[in-house]
């Protein structure tokens, strides 16, 4: 018996519960020759803001033990550029396209969300709330509950697309943010974003990244992510998409077991571009071995 892997994340129907993590899979074409995009559960594209951005100075990445430190700085073509250059390509595939959006102000978030609202081929929006808020000072949208509430509410009012805020890991109570997202009308939540971190060179006495600090991703953060996903999944009824260090089907099954309705493969795609597809096949095989008919039968199967 072939298990049914399909799942629905806040109105986005997916063939399987494995999507790509934003920022690790480009906009799709970069991996299309290596991976059959149609076999993915969904593609989450690199973060898009209102206008074209260049990102941070180099070096932007540094290797860490069991992980990757990055401060890319969200370079991108802006809404119009993304729609113009990438959407015709992505529309060729039978896979939901989730656009990760970000802004420097709430108005920018709203503007970006509104512009994507009627773009054919966009299945949903993932809201990156971890960028600095220039207009409101140095607070981060993702780590200030009031700001978080304001931005999610504003975006909710600007779009009819399924909305999935991506939660920051460096908060005191992740459940508060999950509940807040649900209360503000989010259709799902995803977590976690990379963990703020830094790396230095003792010879040069300089930071390893031009931006000084960056975000840590990869297997190093998986235990942190797993805990946060477990806490968030207990706090809300809306679907939770878990990510953070997933590199194998076993990793993904752990996230699903603690309550994630779907998972995203991130840093591992840099090492093996087809990791996400291997995860899909591994989940399918595992469910078949356990004689489970659907992936939903495994979601939340954790026995604490």
């Amino acid at each position: 018996m072939t298990p049914n892997l399909s799942t629905n994340i806040g109105g986005i129907q997916m063939k399987n519960p494995v999507m790509t993590a934003s920022g690790t899979f480009g906009y799709g074409p970069e991996y299309a020759e290596l991976v059959d995009l149609n076999q993915l559960g969904a593609i989450v594209v690199k973060g898009i803001c209102l206008n074209e951005t260049k990102g941070n100075q180099t070096p932007r990445t540094a290797e860490a033990a069991s992980g990757l430190l990055n401060a890319i700085g969200l370079p991108g073509p802006g809404v119009a550029g993304f729609v113009r250059e990438y959407m015709p390509f992505l529309r060729q595939y039978d896979v939901p396209v989730i656009v990760n959006i970000w802004g420097k102000t709430i108005e920018e978030y709203v503007e970006v969300a509104a512009r994507f609202d009627s773009i054919p081929g966009v299945a949903g929006l993932e809201v990156n709330v971890s960028c600095p808020n220039i207009k409101e000072g140095s607070a981060l949208f993702g780590t200030d509950l009031k700001m978080f509430e304001r931005v999610v509410k504003a975006i909710r009012n600007a779009t009819r697309l399924p909305l999935m805020p991506k939660l920051a890991p460096n908060v005191a109570d992740i459940a508060e943010y999950a509940r807040c997202a649900e209360a503000c009308g989010a259709d799902a939540i995803s977590l976690i974003n990379s963990f703020p971190a830094m790396s230095v060179n003792i010879e040069t006495r300089r930071p390893m990244l031009a931006n000084k600090t960056g975000g840590l991703s990869g297997p190093a953060i998986k235990p942190i992510a797993l805990r946060l996903v477990w806490l968030a999944a207990q706090a809300v009824k809306i679907p939770v998409v878990g990510m953070g260090g997933i590199a194998s089907a076993e990793d993904a099954l752990e996230f699903l077991m603690v309550g994630a309705r779907a998972v995203a493969v991130g840093t591992a795609s840099f090492i093996h571009p087809d990791t996400a597809l291997k995860v899909v096949r591994g989940i399918e095989q595992f469910l078949a071995e356990k004689n489970l008919a659907t992936v939903a039968d495994w979601v939340g199967a954790f026995d604490p």
């Binding site: 119009a80 729609v83 113009r84 250059e85 959407m87 015709p88 512009r115 009627s118 081929g121």
Partner: peptide, 15 residues
């Protein structure tokens, strides 16, 4: 906005 939507459908890249 109209260009955005058309650009999402057709490879025209209207600017």
């Amino acid at each position: 906005a109209a260009f955005d939507r058309l650009n999402a459908i057709y490879p025209w890249g209207l600017v």
